[in-house]
Nucleic acid binder design. Structure first.
Lengths: 207, 207
DNA sequence: ACTTTTCTCCCCCAAAAGCGTGATGTCGGT
DNA sequence: ACCGACATCACGCTTTTGGGGGAGAAAAGT
């Protein structure tokens, strides 16, 4: 029996995943967590073989929680996410996630990813990789580190002046990075850029 | 046996809700739909007692689908949504929804809402109304019709000039409405406002 | 050593956004 | 008839954005 810990801030999805896990051959539900903190605790205190975790959560998000679980030598983590963006996937993998799935995956895909992870494999290949390289645009827009930082702050609604202050650089520099970022992601203004960034989960929700 | 049609664009939630429905006393799954169009079809072609529908979906959204189902004299609709905002709830109810639940609700809350709807009741009172008036801020920001329209367009990344053209009014007027809207929702700039609007599902995803 | 990328900052300037105030007119309620 | 809310537009004004080019320095790849 593979014991699975389900982590999601959203009650409905949590209940859904829990039901999914419970009703699957050879798999059982070890527990549920609503947030990253709780996930880290339960992943080690309970007997857990695999963690099924949502990537975007308020507070301690999936990536951070995965990092901590991995640091403690906890069970493998399969990451679930709404978006399939290059850097996020890499972040998740860097944090120590065993697998990464977009939520567009069918339920049996998720479950087979779970059993694969339990066997020590990396359930990435099946479709996530494909969806990653083809579905969401052929060209992964290349943003420099600084451009991403600036963009993330724009996506929080901060004006250039504050962004500059926050990063300790001149406002002119912020603008330069922004113009670069706009061209890179193919938008015409800051509002579009902010929404773009949000769609990719570049910014954690403040709420 | 109450036959339920589950509608959600998101595979995981759909599977989750389906599992939830199937595993509940006196309720069974009549079918699943991925979008509004399909929902309208299945709601009448299949023998359905209650429709459990997500409010925000690409293309034909939950509100619109509800309107059509109600127009056809279809089964009662219980609306599920991530946000609890005044106008959206009212919209849903106007469209003919029997109930409205935020997704923060527990799974048994959802199910009892379903059975209530099947009995012809309005599963609004239990917690949705409370969550509606207290949880999301004491004061539901009152936006005039025009302010909402303008804000929705801002939240799509359009500049004032285009918004003005789209609505057939002067750009100055757009600004006026915007200043009003900013004050009403308590933000300091257009980017924040755009994000605010998105959080409330005021704009349908273009993707 | 050389090139490329990235980060940094500057100039000027045009366009867009935002604020204050005021002035119409309509509509609906008291 | 009056008042408040709404939508419409205007003048003027400040701030913010965004685009163009240029330019120095450090880091990384060739």
């Amino acid at each position: 029996m593979i014991r699975v810990l389900v982590v999601d801030d959203h009650p409905v999805v949590r209940a859904g995943l829990a039901a999914l896990v419970s009703g699957f051959e050879g798999v059982e539900l070890a527990g549920c967590a609503e947030g990253g903190e709780e996930a880290v605790e339960l992943a080690t205190s309970l007997a857990v073989d695999v963690v099924l975790m949502d990537a975007s959560m308020p507070g301690c998000d999936g990536i951070e929680a995965t990092r901590r679980i991995a640091a403690k030598g906890g069970p493998p983590v399969v990451m679930l996410s709404t978006f399939s963006e290059h850097s996020r996937v890499l972040d998740a993998l860097d944090a120590g996630a065993a697998g990464y799935l977009v939520k567009d995956a069918a339920s049996d895909e998720i479950m087979s990813a779970v059993v694969a992870a339990a066997r020590g494999e990396a359930p990435l290949a099946p479709r996530a990789a494909a969806a990653l390289l083809s579905a969401r645009g052929p060209k992964a827009p290349h943003l420099s580190e600084r451009e991403q930082e600036v963009l993330a702050l724009v996506a929080r609604g901060l004006p250039n002046k504050l962004i500059a202050r926050r990063l300790g650089i001149a406002e002119k520099t912020v603008k330069t990075h922004l113009t670069g970022a706009y061209r890179a992601i193919g938008v015409t203004g800051r509002t579009e850029a902010a929404l773009w960034a949000h769609e990719r989960g570049m910014v954690e929700r403040v709420a």
